[in-house]
């Protein structure tokens, strides 16, 4: 598949590839200790020693952005995993069973969808207290209804097809049919949703951490870096711009990847 035929896929893969590299690198190496304060080198503008400059505590912004990538990716991965698997289980059961089960499950999903995502996360954090683990749980919950709706659509579409009827006539049970026969056919919208969901998880984590109810200090997170740097926006704009670019790139990359996969599944480019 050439870059001309599916530019979204190529650009998305490139950006996600680079960020994944940074994510893995963040576990092995950062130029400086991300939490190391050095009051003699506060607010240094970008230079060879500190490519993205330093912040109000003299911490290296590049190192903090790298550790922030680690946080954002871990939260994104786990969130999509939780939301995706719970959503798949609910949506698949609802779509395949139909009738009252379907109706009940979808009404519950409607009710969950009425809580704007951030609000749902706010509630969980209010009740359970802040922390990265609780944040992941909250965001995972927030993604369940959208995944459930997509999965339901796929399973509803295939449940009366010939290959399903034939599998049933051999005596295959519902779980086997759903997992082995329908899922492979209904998977591609789920994969697209996972990629776009990852982008949304990055946004949600950054927003909540910006509000001070996501990732807690001293762990660096892109959103918290933005709220900390807003006070000295004029003095040290690089402290704001570095995490800003990181967030925009991650969201752009995963959105493009989702678009690209969708286009590729439709056959060829757009």
């Amino acid at each position: 598949m050439g870059a001309k035929r599916n530019p979204s896929l190529v650009a998305g893969l490139a950006i996600v590839g680079i960020l994944t590299g940074v994510f893995i690198l963040g576990f092995l190496f950062t130029p400086y200790d991300a939490n190391l304060m050095d009051l003699s080198s506060r607010f240094l503008s970008p230079s060879a020693a500190h490519p993205f400059g330093t912040d109000n505590f003299g911490r290296d912004v590049l190192s903090r952005v790298m550790i922030g990538t680690r946080t954002a990716f871990l939260v994104g991965l786990l969130t999509v995993l939780i939301g995706g698997s719970a959503g798949l289980a609910i949506g698949a059961t609802a779509g395949y069973s139909g009738g009252l089960v379907d109706e009940a499950a979808m009404r519950l999903m409607d009710a969950m969808m009425a809580f704007p995502g951030i609000l749902l996360a706010l509630v969980v954090v209010t009740v359970l207290g802040p922390g990265t683990g609780k944040l992941i749980l909250a965001l995972g919950l927030m993604f369940v209804p959208s995944f459930a709706r997509i999965a339901r659509g796929g399973f509803l579409q295939y449940r009366d097809r010939e290959f399903v009827l034939s599998a049933r006539s051999w005596g295959a049970g519902p779980v086997r049919i759903m997992a082995l026969h329908i899922l492979p056919n209904a998977a591609s919208p789920m994969i697209v949703a996972a990629s776009v969901g990852f982008a949304n998880a990055v946004i949600a984590e950054a927003s909540l951490s910006y509000l001070g109810i996501g990732v807690q200090p001293p762990d660096p997170s892109w959103g918290r870096m933005l709220s900390e740097s807003q006070a000295f926006l004029f003095k040290a704009p690089w402290c704001t711009l570095a995490p800003a670019v990181a967030i925009a790139l991650a969201v752009l990359g995963f959105n493009l990847l989702g678009d690209g996969i969708r286009a590729a599944r439709k056959g060829g480019g757009q």
Binding site: L226, P237, I247
Partner: peptide, 22 residues
Amino acid sequence: TQLGMAIPPFLLGILLILVFSV
């Protein structure tokens, strides 16, 4: 529009403050 979707509201807000006010 891809770029527009990539910048969440709070971030765009900060950037707008940077450009217009600062």
